[in-house]
Simulated scan of single mutants.
Amino acid sequence: MTLQSSVSATVESDRVAFEYTVENVGDDPVELTFRSTLTADFAVLDGGEEVWRASEGQMFAQMLQTETIDPGDSETFSGEWDDPSPGDYAVVAELNTTDGDAEARTDFSV
């Protein structure tokens, strides 16, 4: 797979907004097959211990769906963590696909 990904964390007064961008840096289209209606997930870590996950406690329709990312194009996925406690964290974002993993990580402070 010729995907390159990055995640950003924007700290606001009462939440942290995440944006996860996956770009096709190759010469051929990339077809992604998602396992469910959950296309991307975000996990917040405190010293390696998971303290929050966007999909935790959520239900998603179990259906395969596909999306094609053409060469040079990108797709952005969003999430947000409400009422975070002050501290230093890392967010890990990943695609929920059947055909390979794309993952990105960044540190942030609240």
Rank of each mutant, 00 (worst) to 15 (best):
S55I: 01
L45H: 13
F34E: 00
R53Q: 13
Q65M: 13
G47I: 09
T39L: 07
A61K: 07
L38K: 08
V44L: 13
L38F: 09
D46E: 15
G47W: 09
T33K: 02
S36Y: 00
Q62L: 07
G57S: 05
V44R: 11
G57P: 04
R53S: 12
T33V: 05
A61W: 01
V51M: 14
D46S: 15
M59R: 10
W52R: 01
V51D: 12
F60L: 11
G48M: 05
T37M: 06
Q62E: 09
A40E: 02
Q62W: 01
E56L: 13
G47V: 10
R35E: 01
F60W: 14
M63P: 00
R53E: 15
Q58R: 12
M59S: 13
M63E: 14
L45K: 11
A54Q: 14
A61P: 00
G47T: 09
G48H: 01
S55W: 00
F60N: 05
G48V: 06
G47K: 10
R53F: 04
M63I: 09
W52Q: 08
E49F: 05
M63T: 11
A54C: 07
Q58D: 14
Q62P: 03
L45C: 07
L45Q: 12
S36V: 00
A54F: 12
T66S: 09
D46G: 07
M63D: 07
M63G: 03
Q65V: 06
E50T: 14
T66V: 07
G57I: 07
M63N: 06
T37N: 10
E56Y: 09
T66M: 06
T66P: 02
T33G: 00
E56F: 08
Q58N: 08
A40R: 00
A43I: 11
Q58K: 14
S55V: 01
D46F: 01
A61V: 11
A43C: 07
M63Y: 00
A54M: 10
A54G: 08
E49K: 13
G57R: 03
T66N: 12
V51L: 12
E49I: 10
Q65W: 04
A61G: 05
T39H: 10
F60K: 09
A43M: 10
L45S: 10
F42T: 14
L38E: 09
M59E: 13
E49Y: 07
G48E: 01
D46V: 07
A40N: 03
T66Q: 08
V51Q: 11
R35L: 02
S55L: 06
R53W: 01
V44I: 15
T37K: 07
M63V: 15
D41E: 15
L45V: 09
V44D: 13
D41I: 03
S55G: 04
T66L: 04
M63Q: 11
T37D: 05
S36W: 02
F42W: 09
F34V: 04
F60A: 08
D46I: 06
G48D: 05
